[in-house]
Amino acid sequence: MNTPTPAATPAASVSAFTGASAAASAATAAARPPAAAWRRLLLPLGLLAGVALLLAAGLRQDPRALPSALIGRPVPALALPSLHDGRSGLDLRPGGLHGPYVLHVWASWCAPCREEQPVLMALARQHPRWTLAGIAYKDAPAQARAFLTRLGDPYTAIGQDSDGRAAMELGVYGVPETFVVDARGRITWRHAGPLDAAARTELEARMEAAR
Rank of each mutant, 00 (worst) to 15 (best):
N2T: 15
P6R: 14
A7I: 03
P10R: 11
A12K: 13
S15V: 14
T18C: 07
T18N: 12
S21H: 00
A22I: 14
S25N: 05
A29V: 07
R32S: 10
P34E: 12
A35R: 10
R39A: 13
L43G: 02
P44V: 13
L45H: 05
G46L: 13
G46A: 13
A49F: 12
G50D: 06
L54F: 04
L55F: 06
A56F: 09
L59K: 09
L66S: 11
P67R: 01
A69F: 08
G72T: 01
R73T: 08
P74H: 01
P76N: 11
A79H: 04
L80K: 04
S88D: 15
G89E: 07
R93E: 04
G95S: 12
L97C: 04
Y101H: 05
L103N: 06
H104M: 04
A107M: 02
S108L: 10
A111E: 10
P112L: 06
C113H: 02
E116H: 07
E116R: 01
Q117M: 15
V119N: 01
A122V: 02
Q126E: 15
T131N: 07
L132G: 06
A140L: 10
R145E: 12
L151Q: 03
D153H: 04
T156S: 13
Q160H: 04
D161E: 06
S162R: 02
G164Y: 03
G164I: 09
R165M: 08
A167H: 01
A167Q: 01
V172A: 13
Y173F: 14
P176W: 04
E177Y: 11
V180L: 06
V180A: 13
T188M: 10
T188G: 07
W189C: 05
W189Y: 08
A192G: 02
G193D: 10
A198L: 05
A198C: 10
A199F: 03
E202S: 06
L203W: 08
A205V: 10
A205I: 09
R206P: 02
A210L: 10
R211F: 11
